[in-house]
């Protein structure tokens, strides 16, 4: 049995440090990944066919190859071509690419669900395509995509643990190191699990709040 003293003075501080490193990956990946997803999603609907195909191909590759393999590629293969990332940079880049690809799919679906009449009305008033997308369609599509995008952010919180394989020691990494020294697998992994559960619960709560804040009477899914 793990002593209470060791739990409070060794395990919790180490996991807290891991939590800090995890958050340093999750928060920028979530924000940049979401914004990138909106851009890629919009390109996949409104860009000229050539650009659209490139964006579709990009998303196809990112979604179609295991994330773990992509991370290995970024960290271990790219240096052979002279592109060097720190473990943090490689993990962050991998997560942003992955997250934005999934977000773009939710955004694309939401963009397509906006009634075409509103697009016509915007053009009829003299809007450019960019203005139409930015002022009319994207604000509505983002609201409609929020539940899906929230799902992706929760998923991101969990797959951030893959950074461990690039020697970036975040929450899971710290837990693993603690068990390697103390062999208290049950207590340590259970506690680390609670940390993740706390993060995902907090994220779910914040996303629900955001959905409520941006809700428009009679628009989108009503509760």
């Amino acid at each position: 049995m793990l002593s209470l003293d060791m739990f409070w003075n060794r395990v919790i501080p180490a996991l807290n440090e891991g939590l800090f490193f995890s958050l340093s990956l999750i928060i920028p990946s979530a924000v940049i990944g979401f914004l990138g997803g909106v851009c890629i999603g919009a390109l996949r609907v409104y860009a000229p066919p050539a650009v659209r195909r490139i964006a579709d191909f990009h998303v196809g590759v990112i979604r179609g190859v295991p994330l773990l393999l992509q991370l290995y590629f970024l960290y271990y293969a790219l240096p052979k071509w002279g592109v060097r990332f720190s473990p943090y940079q490689a993990a962050l880049l991998g997560f942003i690419l992955c997250s934005s690809a999934y977000h773009s799919e939710y955004i694309r679906g939401a963009l397509l669900s906006i009634r075409q009449g509103q697009v016509k009305a915007a053009y009829a008033l003299g809007f450019s395509t960019l203005q139409m997308a930015l002022c009319i369609v994207i604000p509505q599509a983002v609201r409609r995509a929020l539940p899906g995008c929230g799902n992706e952010i929760i998923y991101l919180i969990k797959y951030s643990s893959l950074a461990y394989v690039l020697t970036f020691i975040e929450l899971t990494g710290h837990a693993k190191e603690l068990t390697a020294r103390s062999f208290h697998y049950i207590e340590i992994y259970f506690t680390a699990g609670m940390y993740y559960l706390a993060m995902t619960s907090l994220a779910a709560w914040l996303l629900g709040l955001l959905e409520k804040k941006t809700r428009i009477p009679g628009f989108g899914a009503q509760k």
């Binding site: 009634r115 009449g117 509103q118 016509k120 009305a121 009829a124 003299g126 809007f127 450019s128 509505q140």
Partner: peptide
Amino acid sequence: LRSLRERVGMIFQDFNLFDH
């Protein structure tokens, strides 16, 4: 084209107001 549309107003059968 944009100046044409700016100067020619249009009313649609199903209104096409911006929902948000």
